[in-house]
Design a binder for these strands. Structure first.
Lengths: 307, 307
DNA sequence: AATATTATTCCAAATTATGGAATTGTGAAA
DNA sequence: TTTCACAATTCCATAATTTGGAATAATATT
């Protein structure tokens, strides 16, 4: 328990305090935040004031005419929002599992980022439903044909016009140029592709060539970073660096859509985005296909498709 | 707001509810939990009861003589504890940054898991201190000599007896056999290495050979998984599968120590663990070394060393 | 069978949260 | 420049919630 200043009541419900603060951070006024939450404006003032005292710094600049979240407040709100959501999630019921069991080895290949973000949850779910399955997962960002020959199911971005495989489109995937709100506040947003030349950027390294992947834009335009703030062949590491404000990056939408929704990242250069690419799942059309491969394939299609 | 049954008061402070529940989950009685928290046993009863109503299922089996957290309760407690900690963390102040600025490219190589878990936070910190640095990070789990030639700073597990490099030991790293508590509850814990032959395990694939890395034990013993529940060359994916109870795995301590501390994972076969390996950082001893390399090296040493 | 201990329920008292009213501050309109 | 409308903030009386003592019920131990 903490002792407050005179005239500031002690508010022990920190969860509600955070919720009020986060709502205020995305409102144009405390009054608007209060309306959204169905509470009084005094409650918003009290919550923000108490949080500022706990944090030891201002989270909003404000007067009777407008409010402005501080940079510290902005960062704090992003983290708080996520953690608030995580706690709220604890109070939402989840559906039970069901299904019949499969067993044996299934070899699956996918891009790294998609693997971690979208595929692993589904594979874990699959494995719960079918405890006898042996999932052999290969994650890489490059098209390695020899690997394709050894897999049962693959997921790729691009196009698939090969009769050796049965392919099914999962979704269209966009390539977004994104950055953290903090970075944008500091350096501004690019108005055109050429602006990227003098903004901090990060880069994804092609493991095969050692060079940076070019960024793709509408009308077939490309731009390759030269000077970067951070670069790696590891897309996860690149994403971490972007989230932490090191630079702008071009990243597939499935990796960042949650972060965009949570306002941890912001899209820029939307008007020059390339046409969406296909995200598809495929399996070889050779010989009789084990039932488990067919069923896993169908399960992945149903769980990964975006309608 | 939710309408409770007769005689159950509405408790809006969900954070405290979770805290009470989590403390009870690791206590031998509600009275003990109450003592730990400095509240009355009635408060513990009320919090647990209300949480059970919100979740729609029993979290404790209990009578006046003892309490037993249910399996659902156990799982819920593990998640809740982490999220509770994450929220509590929001209310702890953090120290400001300081330092002088460096600029230019620094090429760093490290193992994937260590890179994500231990190294990225430090690199992000470095980049904040030195915004002009261009960090080029290569993450891989294999020793690739040609890559070593192109790097400025490397981090490796094993031994380093090469006079071409300046090496400094960061820590001893242990290889732990771990599994989720849920899995152990379901299948029991191995009493010896041979028990692994009929327990579910996951495996890390050597990208170069396509085969599974052997597990290492004391007195030079090795064991290689044959049938796995899950396998990947991607250590992150393997770790996710272990956390979700797919199988036992042998994983370096730096990847799992937080999860062990949080009781999300449990160590087994501790008595046959191999002697610790060296985790060391190194840089080439060729020609004059740019100051930025030297300073980054020293910074990494100071931040990554375990005392 | 008796006893000690703990979970649970009830209830009065204590504590906290709440919004109306008033005050203060600020930008826009006259 | 003055006036006005609006919102942040503070104060305070009231409402709502939380609290622990007391009582009850249940259970393992003696």
């Amino acid at each position: 328990m903490f002792i407050s200043n005179l005239n500031v009541t002690v508010m022990l419900n920190r969860l509600e305090m955070l919720r009020i603060f986060c709502t205020a951070a995305e409102s144009r006024s405390f009054k608007e935040a209060a309306n959204r939450l169905g509470i009084s404006p005094q409650a918003v003032t009290r919550a923000v004031k108490e949080l500022e005292q706990l944090q030891g710094e201002l989270l909003f600049h404000r007067n009777t005419r407008h409010i402005q979240v501080t940079q510290v407040g902005e960062k704090f709100a992003l983290i708080a929002k996520e953690r608030l959501r995580a706690v709220d999630e604890l109070f939402q019921t989840s559906a039970p599992n069901s299904g019949n069991e499969l067993q044996g080895r299934v070899r699956i290949a996918a891009p790294v980022g998609f693997g971690h973000k979208c595929l692993m949850p589904v594979l874990l779910e699959l494995s719960t439903i079918h405890p006898q399955l042996d999932i052999d997962l290969t994650l890489s960002d490059e098209r390695v044909d020899v690997v394709d020959e050894k897999i049962d199911i693959g997921i790729r971005i691009g196009f698939m016009r090969d009769s050796r495989f049965i392919a099914r489109q999962l979704a269209k995937t966009n390539m977004y140029v994104v950055a953290s709100p903090d970075l944008i506040n500091r350096v501004g947003r690019p108005a055109s592709i050429v602006d990227l030349n003098h903004l901090p950027v990060t880069g994804l390294v092609d493991r095969n060539t050692g060079r940076l992947w070019p960024w793709v834009f509408s009308m077939g335009r490309q731009w390759t970073p030269s000077i970067t703030r951070f670069r790696s062949a590891d897309s996860e590491a690149e994403l971490m660096s972007v989230q932490n404000g090191l630079g702008f990056a071009q990243i597939p939408d499935f990796l960042v859509q949650d972060l965009l929704r949570q306002e941890k990242l912001v899209r820029v250069l939307e008007e020059v985005e390339p046409v969406p690419w296909d995200l598809y799942i495929y399996r070889p059309q050779r010989g009789p296909v084990p039932q488990r491969i067919r069923l896993v394939f169908d399960h992945l299609v149903s769980r990964l498709s975006v309608h």
